[in-house]
Amino acid sequence: MASAPLHIAALIAAGLVLACGALACGARADELVPYKIIGDTIPQSLTDSPGDPARGRALVLARTTTCILCHSGPFPEVRFQGDLAPDLKGTGNWWSAGQLRLRLVDASRFNPKTIMPSYYRNDGLVRVGRNFADKPILSAAEIEDIVAFLATLRD
């Protein structure tokens, strides 16, 4: 029998997959841009242009990315925010853009048992609906927009 925290995490992850399928989670059919991981970062942008923090904020708050399902942050207009993952307030103080980028691209590199989706992967994933198989959840530009926004969150 699984311990309570792992059992709860599995239920939450299953709920995320179901919610993602029901809400058409923004899956993109575009090909993944090659990137290089150095240490705990992807130091180079996935695009040729900087991300837009305003678009990134909108993506973080969108139910399609599920960010605020688990995270909370400095979003007074959002009534229900998650408490399963760290508060996003101060994120720009804690991590560099490259570290944020890798966390969004593939959170499982830091914690193989994480319930956070790997937003820019299409291989080795489990419990993925047929319509979302072989597709990243977010595009390279959307990853860069979220990175740009999270980098602005400083105490």
Rank of each mutant, 00 (worst) to 15 (best):
G21Y: 14
F80K: 02
I38K: 13
G15L: 11
A58W: 01
R127H: 10
R101M: 05
P117A: 07
D87L: 13
L6Y: 10
Y120R: 04
G51T: 03
A54Y: 11
L6G: 05
T65G: 13
N93F: 11
D87I: 12
F149E: 08
L59N: 10
P76N: 11
E77S: 14
V126C: 03
V78E: 15
D155E: 13
P34T: 03
D145K: 01
V17A: 15
C67S: 12
D52P: 04
A140H: 01
T65N: 10
C20V: 04
N93P: 10
A151F: 01
A58Y: 01
C25N: 06
T65R: 09
S45M: 08
A13M: 08
G26Q: 09
S139P: 04
D155W: 06
L138P: 00
T66F: 06
I137A: 09
E31T: 12
G51A: 04
G56E: 05
D123W: 07
V17I: 12
R130Y: 03
M1I: 11
I68S: 07
N93A: 14
N131F: 07
S139C: 07
C67R: 00
G73W: 07
D48A: 05
S3V: 12
G26I: 04
I146C: 01
L16V: 09
D106M: 09
P5K: 15
A13V: 05
I143E: 01
D40I: 03
V78G: 05
G92V: 04
D52T: 03
K36H: 04
N111P: 00
T91F: 12
R57S: 06
A14C: 12
S3Q: 13
P117W: 04
V128E: 09
N111R: 12
R79P: 10
L104Y: 00
K113W: 04
V78Q: 15
L138M: 14
P34Y: 02
A151W: 00
R121M: 11
P43T: 08
V33C: 02
G51H: 02
L32A: 11
A10G: 13
K113C: 02
D106I: 01
V33P: 01
C70V: 10
A29D: 14
N93D: 15
Y120Q: 00
K89L: 14
G98C: 09
A85R: 14
P112Y: 03
V60H: 07
D83H: 15
R79A: 13
A14V: 08
R55L: 05
N93V: 10
I137F: 06
I143R: 06
T152R: 14
A107F: 04
A62L: 07
G98N: 09
V78M: 14
Y119T: 00
N131T: 10
N111C: 02
G92W: 02
A9Y: 03
I38V: 13
A62C: 11
L102Y: 06
Y119A: 03
P86T: 10
S96G: 10
L6P: 00
V78I: 15
L125Q: 12
V105L: 00
L11R: 14
A10V: 10
